[in-house]
């Protein structure tokens, strides 16, 4: 292999005669690549990435909003449910109260009727008792007058009545 090295093939990396060529093309390549990358490729990709980041951010914000809305809807639902329950309770209470009032009125009416009837009965009992008393007084007067006539005593009707009344009162 030493012969080949001497003939210049040995290690192509050390062949100085090709250096200028390689360096020239390298510089051309790097300049072209730099302009292609920095002017076309990188701004595009940066724009796409920024776009995606923006979309993701706004999507997340929208999702937050929807979540909030869902929460609000749930709250409204719960509130409606509670309202309905309260309303139902209120109606039940009202019905109960109405029935109670009705009942009270009926009871009061019944009480009034009963008391009226008992008052009537008492009045009539009293009436009956009073008429009996008058009858007794009448009879007593008549008997007294008869007795006085038998005994031929003189007495006016007024004093007899007073005496009978006093006697009846004292006896009663």
């Amino acid at each position: 292999m030493a012969e080949t090295a001497n003939s210049g093939i040995g290690m192509p990396q050390l062949d100085i005669s090709t250096f200028s060529n390689q360096i020239f093309w390298l510089v051309v390549t790097m300049v072209v690549l730099y302009y292609v990358m920095s002017r076309v490729a990188l701004p595009r990709i940066a724009a796409v990435l920024a776009d995606r980041r923006g979309t993701i951010t706004s999507d997340i914000a929208a999702a937050e909003e929807y979540k909030l809305k869902a929460q609000q809807a749930e709250e409204a639902y719960n509130k409606a449910l509670a309202d309905a329950r309260a309303e139902a309770n209120r109606i039940v209470e009202a019905a109960k109260a109405e029935m109670q009032a009705e009942l009270d009125v009926q009871i009061a009416k019944a009480d009034a009727e009963i008391s009226a009837k008992s008052a009537e009965s008492e009045r009539r009992i009293r009436e009956i008792r009073y008429s009996e008393m008058e009858l007794v007084t009448e009879v007593s007067k008549d008997v007294t007058n008869d007795i006085l006539r038998v005994f031929d005593a003189k007495a006016d009707s007024r004093s007899v009545t007073a005496a009978v009344n006093a006697r009846l009162k004292g006896g009663a």
Partner: peptide, 17 residues
Amino acid sequence: ISWYTPTNVTLWMALTV
């Protein structure tokens, strides 16, 4: 090969781009 000759270096650098 002079400094401007298109060589396999040119070819493969162009392919790199």
